[in-house]
């Protein structure tokens, strides 16, 4: 029992950031803008957030500090995404190139600023954000132990973002417009929708979520931030594709990736006797992504106008 509890809680450290960042990618790609700059946005978000924590955590309540830091991470991610938006929407640049440029720029920028401010590139923080037990809810048998003990506020935030993303994309007028801009922007345009505005919104939301995801990724993982999120932005892209650009599928994919990563590192207690090599668990998510891609390539759910700069005159 305690083994399952442990695996579940460790899975959250992979699941929640992957989920949030992949949902970020979802907003951008459903509006028609490829976003491979998720990694860079995570780095910028984590950097700004950790910097805030570094300076203010002594003088604030930890949970409030984390929430403010998340907001700052999100906003700096948004600001960073603005470059991507300007390049790919206004300038009609190749979106992969612009994303790659941002990915290269982000770590260099973080190192440069960190050195300028404090002489070293690692930004230190101490993790005081873990909630040992939520009052009342933590006492519920079973559920309390799983969901409301040894947890982070970000776990609930992640689920909230998932529900909100689904509501926004499928239950609001804005969501419909966003999706239409990713499928056939010319049609959306003829219906009087401002494609540029919608695409801006998609890209900026994407930056906000990716920035937050970066901070959520770093907090339980290390004791300092070293301009690195270990390639999880790219992993989130794989989650997005594996989840076929649909929020609930993405949640499933993120959980699958996270769980596989967890058992590859921690091992499965009841499967230990089978002595399956760790590598098996490590490659499973990637092999699964390849299989899904191979089988869905004919009727892939990828937004049709993804990656194409909007051209009013094209039909």
């Amino acid at each position: 029992m305690s083994d399952i509890l442990f695996l579940f809680q460790q899975t959250m450290f992979f699941f929640i950031p992957l989920l949030i960042v992949a949902l970020g990618g979802l907003f951008s790609e459903r509006s028609g803008i490829i976003n491979i700059a998720l990694e860079g946005m995570m780095i910028i978000g984590a950097f700004a957030g950790i910097f805030f924590i570094h300076f203010f955590q002594q003088s604030m309540d930890p949970q409030i500090c984390l929430l403010v830091a998340l907001l700052i991470a999100g906003l700096s991610g948004t600001l960073f995404a603005l470059f991507h938006a300007i390049a790919s929407i206004n300038m009609k640049a190749d979106q992969t190139i612009s994303g790659t440029a941002l990915n290269m720029f982000a770590p260099a920028f973080c190192i440069f600023v960190a050195r300028l401010v404090q002489q070293t590139q690692q930004v230190e923080f101490s993790n005081t954000f873990r909630i040992t037990k939520v009052p009342v809810l933590g006492d519920i048998p079973f559920i309390g132990e799983f969901l409301f003990q040894n947890t982070y506020i970000t776990n609930f935030l992640g689920i909230l973002i998932l529900v909100l993303s689904w509501l926004i994309l499928y239950k609001t007028r804005f969501g419909l417009r966003l999706r239409s801009c990713g499928e056939l922007p010319q049609a959306a345009d003829s219906a009087g929708i401002n494609v540029y505005k919608i695409r801006y919104a998609g890209t900026l939301i994407s930056g906000f979520l990716a920035g937050m995801g970066g901070l959520i990724f770093i907090v339980p993982t290390s004791t300092n931030f070293n301009a690195d999120v270990a390639g999880y932005g790219f992993l989130a892209l794989a989650v997005l594709i594996f989840g076929q650009w649909k929020p609930w599928h993405i949640a499933g994919a993120a959980f699958f990736f996270g769980f596989m990563k967890t058992i590859a590192s921690a091992g499965l207690p009841f499967l230990a006797s089978l002595s399956i090599p760790n590598y098996f668990y490590k490659i499973t998510p990637y092999v699964a992504t390849l299989i899904v891609l191979a089988f869905t390539s004919k009727n892939s759910a990828a937004p049709r106008a993804e990656g194409e700069p909007f051209d009013k005159g094209k039909r």
């Binding site: 442990f6 300092n224 070293n226 690195d228 990563k261 590859a264 590192s265």
Partner: peptide
């Protein structure tokens, strides 16, 4: 040589 959740998970499982 970088910090990852994999290492955190492995170390956590050891401590556990």
């Amino acid at each position: 040589f970088s910090a990852t959740p994999e290492i955190q998970t492995k170390a956590s499982s050891w401590y556990k």
